[in-house]
Computed example of a mutant assay.
Amino acid sequence: MAVPAFAASLDVPHAHYGLSVGNSETFNGLRFNLADEDVKTIRGMNFTVFNWDGHYEKAYTLTANRIDGLALGVMGPRAREINGLALGCWLTNVGVMRGINIAPIHVIGGTTTGFTFSLVHTLKKLNGIGIGMVTNIEEESNGVLIGLLYLTAPKVNGVVIQGLFSGKVEEVTGLSLEWGSLAFLASGILAGLSVGPAPETSASPSFSPVGSKKLTGMMIGGYNLVKEQKGVLLGLFGNSIKKGSGLQIGTLFNTAESFDGVQIGFINHIEENPFLFRWMPGINFHFGGDAEEKENP
């Protein structure tokens, strides 16, 4: 049976400032409460221990409107807006966060500006630095984003650092560092530099390719798989593209369906070259546009 939060509070020396113990709705100073209910504005230091069973069943319920200062909680804190420092042992839930947000397990929020650390992020938008073992951004991230195990974001402006098993980032503008990736990595645009020598995993091809639909810039990886390339591909083992231009360097092999540029590697393949020059050792090249462009000027 759910136990309701206390509506009353003990406030010293005044009802709105000083020291408060209980469910004070508007207070400035030090405030301690077991479980928040319909809190309006707290300025100072707020410590809420946990939520009652009714709140636990609705884990995403926001029980406070605004907290300015230091927000602490064992299971929380939870507020529509937090400005300052938020520390919780589990499930920090905030609509808008400005400052530092740290929860060992699971940070849920709308827009976070500042520094966020958690084993799991589920944020709508991140501006600043986010560090999480599993990070999920619904809209975009501006700044530094570190995934470590897994990271998903439609768009990242700045620096992305993913480790072990990289997740899905659709568009990157800036610098992306990958160490170990799954085959569905970066199914969008990589503009800048992507680095990712990838180990073999059961969930991907032999060398777990660092891959994208479109590359503008430079990609460095164990095996680079790109649909459309403009720039430089450096592959420890090789590079594979459908259409591109620029430079491909791969220790073992390079392959392309349509390519304007130079390939350097042990074996090089350009499908649109004349039959005798499609497969070449050491170096291969093609200039002058692809067959489709010649047929449809």
Rank of each mutant, 00 (worst) to 15 (best):
S204D: 12
G95N: 04
G99D: 04
V39E: 01
Q229W: 03
L85H: 00
M133D: 02
T173F: 12
M1T: 12
F50I: 10
N268P: 06
T61C: 02
S208E: 04
T113I: 06
L276I: 11
G143N: 08
A8W: 02
V134F: 13
V39Y: 02
L190R: 09
I131W: 03
S141K: 05
I102S: 04
P13G: 06
P4S: 09
I264K: 09
I249V: 15
V144W: 11
L190G: 04
P205T: 03
A2C: 06
N127C: 07
E292W: 13
R80H: 13
H16F: 08
G192S: 05
P104E: 07
Y223S: 05
E292L: 11
S202Y: 12
A79V: 13
V232P: 04
A35R: 01
G250A: 11
G54S: 14
F27V: 13
N23Q: 08
S206V: 09
K155L: 11
G192Y: 06
R278Q: 15
P197W: 08
A59E: 04
G22Q: 09
V96P: 00
H55K: 12
F27S: 11
G238Q: 11
F266M: 15
H286Y: 12
G22H: 07
V12L: 15
L225K: 15
P209C: 08
G69N: 03
P77V: 10
G265H: 10
K243W: 07
I161Q: 00
E37F: 07
T116V: 15
D260Y: 07
D68F: 00
Q162G: 15
I241Y: 05
L252M: 15
M97F: 06
P205F: 05
A79H: 08
L34N: 06
F287Q: 06
A8G: 02
N101I: 01
L236H: 04
F6M: 14
F287D: 06
K227A: 12
M75Y: 05
Q263T: 09
E140K: 15
V160F: 01
H14C: 04
A64I: 01
G222P: 03
F285N: 05
K155P: 01
I42K: 03
L276Y: 07
N23G: 14
Y60I: 06
D260Q: 10
N273R: 07
W279Y: 08
E57K: 15
